[in-house]
Amino acid sequence: MSMEHVAARAVLFDRDGTLVEDVPYNGNPSLVRPMPGAVAAVAAARAGGLAVGVVSNQSGIGRGLLTWDEVGAVNARVEEVFGGFDTWQICPHTPDEGCACRKPEPGMVLAACAELGVLPEETVFVGDIEADVLAAERAGTRSVLVPTPVTLPDEVHRAETVAADLPEAVRLALS
């Protein structure tokens, strides 16, 4: 690792495919299903003294497929399942809007760090695809990739840190 290892004070999670099963453009709270081990992993992060947050691309808003209210209802259901998160960062833009927030850009990760009052190097970002890893790298945070069946093998190969599941990712963040 190029940067000196600094103890984590916060862990940020991608939502879809990381915390909960990926349902494309989900506006229905009843479709929220936690990924295996995810609820216990978030609880372990909190128990370890880490601030916890969610960083999520939701281009369905920009595409006109979802409303902010629908995304908010899904996020509220995520909090019913996992407990409250210390920060939520949502990018509503489509890929062609060229915003600074949509992963792999670092905007949401940096905004989460600022809201939590932690430095990027004190933060670990956990996600399931390379856009999450790149957003973390560009923001100066550590990244942990938790592959799913949709994660490309090349993305797994390129990732600096890979965990088998969310509990392992949180253990790595706490170590």
Rank of each mutant, 00 (worst) to 15 (best):
V118K: 13
T148A: 00
A73T: 02
G53Q: 14
E115G: 12
D128Y: 05
A111D: 15
E168G: 05
P147W: 01
F13I: 06
R46Y: 15
G64H: 11
V150Y: 07
R33C: 01
V32P: 04
D22G: 01
P24V: 03
G37W: 05
D132H: 06
A41K: 09
A76Y: 06
A173D: 06
L65F: 12
A131G: 08
L166N: 10
E115F: 05
Q89S: 13
P167T: 05
L145G: 05
E130H: 13
V170A: 12
E130C: 00
L19R: 06
P24Q: 05
T141C: 14
E79Q: 15
R138P: 03
P120S: 08
E137L: 11
D154K: 04
T94E: 15
R158D: 00
A38V: 00
L110E: 13
A131F: 10
K103D: 01
V11H: 09
T87D: 10
A8M: 12
E137I: 02
N75L: 14
G49L: 15
L65S: 01
R63A: 14
E21L: 09
V170D: 11
G127S: 02
Q58W: 02
P104F: 03
F82S: 10
G84P: 11
V20S: 10
T148N: 03
L116W: 07
G27K: 01
L19D: 02
D132A: 08
V78Q: 14
A169D: 08
P36V: 02
V124I: 09
R46C: 13
A131K: 09
G127W: 06
G127R: 03
E79M: 15
A100R: 15
G60L: 04
G48I: 10
G64V: 12
T94C: 13
A40S: 14
V11I: 12
C113D: 08
R171C: 01
G60K: 10
P104E: 03
P147L: 00
D86V: 01
V133D: 03
R158F: 00
F82V: 04
V81H: 14
D69E: 15
E21Q: 04
R138Q: 09
G17H: 03
N75E: 13
R102W: 01
R77Y: 11
